[in-house]
């Protein structure tokens, strides 16, 4: 669900860039506050690359196949770093296979990034009332994070696309457009919810430190002395 170049007005593209820059700037600001800001660079980059690879995975749903977006999972794993990671991922997608676009990079980053941040907050609800020990809660939150991520992205993208269509377009067609778009993404929302919940459960079993909030990440790193 990436909007290609050339169909949105310039103002929307620039507004997207502004918002995405704000989100990215905030993440960079957080990284710079750390004792050794560079220690996080390889980690963020490798995760970005991993998510890029993951977003190329196609899951066949006969008669077609869907490719994963994984915005929700990025939010859960990366927290605020999700925004720069998404910007970089989209940049390479636009540069290397014309998926999305350069003028719409900002707006696409917002379409995926804002739901990703919401998923991050949603998932962090597990720290309330000691829920983090309850697998049911963690699974539910990550499922919701994953599927709501897709749904939100779809809804926002649909409205954006409709707003750019000529005013004299039949309203019936517009409404049908909304429905078709929304419904065709329902299976993907379900799949991403399931995958997000399963990956989170996997990580909690295998490498729980990977899911700690970013401040903890640094602490666990600071013992690397050279």
């Amino acid at each position: 669900m990436h909007i290609p170049d050339g169909i949105l007005p310039l103002s929307v593209g620039l507004a997207g860039y502004g918002l995405a820059a704000l989100g990215t700037g905030y993440a960079l600001h957080k990284i710079r506050q750390k004792e050794d800001p560079r220690s996080d660079v390889p980690k963020a980059a490798l995760f970005t690359a991993a998510f890029f690879v993951a977003s190329l995975i196609h899951i066949p749903i006969p008669p077609t196949s869907v490719h994963l977006i994984l915005g929700g999972l990025m939010g859960v794993v990366l927290g605020f770093y999700a925004m720069p990671a998404i910007v970089i991922g989209l940049f390479f997608q636009a540069a290397m296979f014309q998926h999305g676009g350069l003028t719409t990079l900002g707006i696409n980053a917002c379409l995926v990034g804002i739901p990703a941040l919401l998923s991050h907050f949603l998932f962090n609800l597990r720290h309330q009332r000691d829920w983090s020990n309850k697998p049911v809660v963690v699974t539910t939150l990550s499922f919701l994070g994953g599927s709501l991520g897709v749904l939100l992205t779809t809804i926002m993208a649909t409205f954006l696309l409709l707003s750019m269509l000529p005013a004299h377009l039949d309203h019936d067609v517009a409404r049908t457009g909304i429905y078709v778009m929304a419904f065709s993404h329902l299976p993907l929302a379900l799949i991403e919810g399931i995958i997000t919940a399963m990956v989170v459960t996997f990580l909690l079993r295998v490498k729980p430190e990977l899911l700690k909030s970013e401040t903890n990440h640094v602490k666990s790193d600071s013992h690397i002395d050279m």
Partner: peptide
């Protein structure tokens, strides 16, 4: 920092 991340990615 952003350029670094792009390069590593």
């Amino acid at each position: 920092l952003m350029a670094d991340m792009l390069l590593f990615t």
